[in-house]
Computed example of a mutant assay.
Amino acid sequence: MSELTLTEALKEHSRTTHDAVDNLVMSMQPFASHDNYRKFLQAQYEFHTTVNPIYHNQTLAEQLDGLANLARLDRVKSDMKDLEVEPFGKDVEQPTFTDSEAIGWLYCVEGSNVGAAILYKEAGKIDLSDEFGASHLAAHPDGRMPHWRDVKGKIDALPVSDEDKQAAMKGADDAFAYFKRVIRKIYDVAE
């Protein structure tokens, strides 16, 4: 059997956690009302603020063409402005990550844009769109799947050691765990 690519290994490694995050988010009913969605935006703001430095990481930028253009923090801020949402502002512990761990974080963030197709559709039911309130959930101009294949190809082309791969797995775990913590804190639900 041929060895898995890094993104295949990440997918395999984080499948259960990924599903748990999806289930947690949907259990908060973020698209039941604008108020519920405002909390979702606050969570997105915390998460995208945390990952934003990855998109401006010099080492990764040299290896991943166009990395800075993929950041979605500005779109999250624009959506918050549309709906008059302030950042959560309470203490949410900021994680740190190494360059190798950042690869796992990047995999999670960019992969989430594929799943955002469902969220974007749900947002439409409460009159949100890429023009108002849900621009950060909109598809990449190239389309969700072509864009995701492109990003995966770039991640798989990174020169990584076995240690880097393990660190990327840890990064993916940390990213999912952090997003779950943020969602629980903002929606005020217990572990």
Rank of each mutant, 00 (worst) to 15 (best):
R181V: 10
F47A: 01
Y120T: 11
H136R: 11
S27V: 12
R144K: 11
Y55K: 13
E122N: 08
D82P: 00
R144I: 09
A134Y: 07
S33L: 07
R149F: 11
A172T: 07
F97D: 01
H140P: 01
K125P: 00
L106G: 05
D162P: 02
H48S: 05
Q29M: 15
W148I: 07
A190W: 11
Q63R: 15
G104H: 03
H13F: 13
D188M: 08
E3F: 07
C108K: 14
T59A: 05
G111L: 10
K165I: 12
M145F: 09
P30M: 04
F176N: 14
V85C: 09
L41P: 01
T98R: 03
N57A: 01
G153C: 07
A117T: 04
F179Y: 11
A172P: 01
N113M: 09
D173F: 12
G115D: 04
P53H: 03
E46N: 15
G66F: 01
M1G: 02
D173P: 06
E12D: 14
I126K: 02
I155R: 06
T96A: 03
G89K: 14
V189A: 13
R15G: 06
L128W: 00
R181T: 15
D150M: 13
Y120W: 02
F97T: 04
D99S: 04
P95E: 02
L73M: 13
T5P: 03
M80C: 03
K11T: 15
R184F: 09
F47C: 05
D22N: 11
W105E: 04
C108S: 10
L119Q: 05
V109L: 14
W105G: 01
F132M: 07
A32Y: 01
E84T: 09
T50P: 00
G133K: 02
I54F: 01
L41D: 04
G153L: 14
A167G: 00
D127Y: 00
A68I: 13
K90G: 14
E191D: 14
L106N: 03
F179Q: 06
T96H: 04
E122H: 05
E110G: 00
P95N: 05
S27F: 12
T17G: 11
G153W: 07
I155H: 09
L83V: 07
E3D: 02
F88R: 15
A123W: 07
K77T: 07
G89I: 15
P30N: 02
M169Y: 14
N57P: 00
K165P: 00
D164M: 09
I183R: 14
G171Y: 12
A177T: 12
Y107V: 13
I118D: 02
K77W: 01
A61S: 15
K39L: 11
Q44T: 09
A123L: 01
D164E: 08
D65A: 13
E101S: 03
E110T: 02
E131H: 12
M80N: 05
M28L: 10
R149I: 12
Y37V: 10
A61I: 14
D82T: 01
T59P: 00
L4F: 10
V160R: 13
A43Q: 08
E3K: 08
N23W: 15
L137I: 12
S27T: 14
N69I: 15
M169S: 08
P53R: 13
E131W: 11
Y120G: 09
K121V: 03
D82G: 00
R184P: 02
E46F: 14
E8M: 12
A116K: 06
P141Q: 10
S161A: 04
E62N: 05
L83R: 05
I186H: 07
F179S: 05
P159S: 03
E3N: 02
F31C: 02
